[in-house]
Amino acid sequence: MHTELLVQLKRITFGYQPAQPVLQDVSLTLRRGEILTLIGPNGAGKSTLLKIMLGLLQPQAGTVWRRDGLRFGYVPQKLHVDASLPMTARRFIELGLPPGTHTLSNRWVELTRVSALLDKPLQGLSGGELQRVMLCRAILRQPDVLVLDEPLQGVDVQGQKFLYQLLVTIRDELQCAIVLISHDLHLVMAQTDQVICLNHHICCSGTPQSVAEHPEYRRLFGEDAGLFAIYTHHHDPHRCAEHEGCTHE
């Protein structure tokens, strides 16, 4: 049971231009151990809501509460790396370590499959490799809340399965909350406790199944959008996350 409240947003309104609110009357709660998925079309306000949750933006109306001392781990949608910047993946990860930490955790380095990437320059990494490096950097902070913005963008099916397996392992071992943001309406991990369908306001929320069947969701995205390809996995995520070729379902 998810009990400890970590973040609570109440009736949030925000707009980059006063007459055009990006978010209007949005509320949500996030508890330890919970997986929350935000879905919605491009421009729906998902990333703006994320920035308000992280404290990077202040709402024009509404309230934000965060537990004292809350640690966030953030995996952005994209990372722009200067082509002339002489930085290895190892150095990039080390710069994100908490004060007083001098070594990388072998377990998380192995589970995120970045061991072979540590001494490569960031500029030489593929999109998927860079994503794993950013994820490793985020979880080595031992966050209370791990946030991933569009983590499946450009990732193939096997990469998606690996990521979902790994996220369950991270949630279980760190006992953190996880927030996933996506505009992909057809793939939601079955372990998600709550899906929020956002289009400037909350259209509907609930379990993946209930949101997929909700009339407001179908009116917004079409009847076919109700057919989620909900990923389920019945094998031990600790074992499968270590095997790149695992395709068990």
Rank of each mutant, 00 (worst) to 15 (best):
111 L>G: 04
112 T>W: 06
112 T>S: 14
113 R>N: 14
116 A>V: 14
118 L>A: 14
122 L>S: 06
122 L>I: 07
123 Q>F: 03
123 Q>E: 11
125 L>K: 11
125 L>M: 14
128 G>D: 12
128 G>C: 13
129 E>Y: 07
131 Q>D: 03
131 Q>W: 11
133 V>D: 04
136 C>Y: 01
142 Q>S: 15
142 Q>R: 15
144 D>H: 15
145 V>E: 09
146 L>S: 01
146 L>R: 07
148 L>M: 08
149 D>V: 12
150 E>T: 08
152 L>Y: 02
153 Q>M: 09
154 G>F: 12
155 V>F: 01
156 D>A: 14
162 F>R: 13
162 F>G: 07
162 F>Q: 15
162 F>C: 07
162 F>L: 12
164 Y>E: 10
166 L>N: 04
169 T>H: 06
175 Q>V: 08
175 Q>W: 01
177 A>G: 14
177 A>Q: 08
180 L>N: 06
180 L>P: 04
181 I>P: 01
182 S>K: 03
183 H>M: 04
184 D>M: 00
184 D>G: 01
184 D>C: 00
187 L>K: 03
188 V>I: 15
188 V>N: 03
189 M>P: 11
189 M>D: 10
191 Q>M: 13
193 D>A: 12
195 V>L: 04
196 I>F: 03
197 C>T: 02
201 H>S: 13
